[in-house]
C-alpha cells in the first residue's frame, strides 16, 4: 500500500514539511478570505505554474488527482447555470480547484514519514492532558502494519464467498473481518506486553 507521494523527487520535495504546511494554510486562508475572484485566478495560475515547473509527468499526475471533483463541477454547473449565475459558479469552482491543487501539491511532494512527524509534533500540547507520544507512534506503526494484513484478509474472504455464491459478498465479509481484527488485537496486545509494553511518557 503506497503513499500518495510522487516519485521521482522534485525540487519541492526538498522543502521541509512544516514550511509547506504553513504556506498551504496561508494560501488557503487567502483564497477564502479575499472576496474577489482575482485571488482564485492568480493563485490558481500559480498552482498550475508550480505543477508544470516540476515536469509534465508531475503535472499530469496532479491533474488526475482532481478527478474526484467532477461531481461537484457538475452540481455547480447545473446550479449556477440554472440561476444564470455563471460568473459566481466559475469563481467558486476556481477557488475549490485551486485549494485542492495546492493541498495535493503538498501531499505529492512530502514523504509520509515527514507528515507523520509533523502530526506527532502537533500533538505535543496534548501531553499535558495525558496523551503518551510513545503510544501514538506505536499506534501509527501498528495501523500501517495491519492495513495490508486486513486488506489481504478481505480479499480472501471475498473469494471464500465467491466460492459458494454467485452473488456479491461485499456485506457478508464485514463480520468476519471485524471479528478477526478483534482477535488479532487481543493477541497483539499480549505480545506487546510480553515485550515490555508501551514506554510510559516520562
Amino acid at each position: 500500500m503506497l503513499a500518495l507521494t510522487y516519485s521521482p523527487q522534485t525540487p519541492l520535495h526538498a522543502l521541509s514539511a512544516p514550511i509547506k504546511l504553513m504556506a498551504l494554510s496561508g494560501i488557503t486562508t487567502a483564497l477564502f478570505i479575499i472576496p474577489t475572484g482575482w485571488a482564485s485566478m492568480v493563485l490558481g495560475g500559480a498552482a498550475l505554474a508550480l505543477y508544470a515547473a516540476m515536469g509534465s509527468a508531475f503535472l499530469r499526475a496532479g491533474l488526475r488527482t482532481l478527478n474526484g471533483l467532477w461531481p461537484f463541477v457538475v452540481v455547480l454547473g447545473l446550479w449556477h447555470g440554472w440561476q444564470g449565475d455563471w460568473d459566481g459558479g466559475i469563481l467558486i469552482l476556481a477557488r475549490l480547484i485551486t485549494a485542492v491543487a495546492f493541498a495535493n501539491l503538498v501531499t505529492m511532494t512530502t514523504p509520509l514519514q515527514d507528515m507523520i512527524a509533523c502530526l506527532v509534533r502537533l500533538l505535543h500540547p496534548f501531553r499535558r492532558l495525558g496523551l503518551n507520544p510513545n503510544a501514538v507512534s506505536l499506534a501509527i506503526a501498528m495501523m500501517i502494519r495491519f492495513i495490508p494484513v486486513f486488506m489481504a484478509r478481505a480479499e480472501q474472504l471475498k473469494m471464500a464467498h465467491r466460492a459458494r455464491s454467485h452473488r456479491s459478498g461485499r456485506w457478508a465479509i464485514i463480520f468476519p473481518l471485524a471479528l478477526g481484527m478483534l482477535d488479532d488485537a487481543d493477541t497483539v496486545a499480549e505480545a506487546l506486553r510480553a515485550r515490555g509494553g508501551i514506554t510510559p511518557k516520562d
Partner: peptide, 12 residues
C-alpha cells in the same frame, strides 16, 4: 492496539 487495529480495519 485496539485503536490502531480498528483504524486499520476502517482502511481495509
Amino acid at each position: 492496539v485496539h485503536i490502531a487495529l480498528f483504524a486499520a480495519l476502517i482502511a481495509a
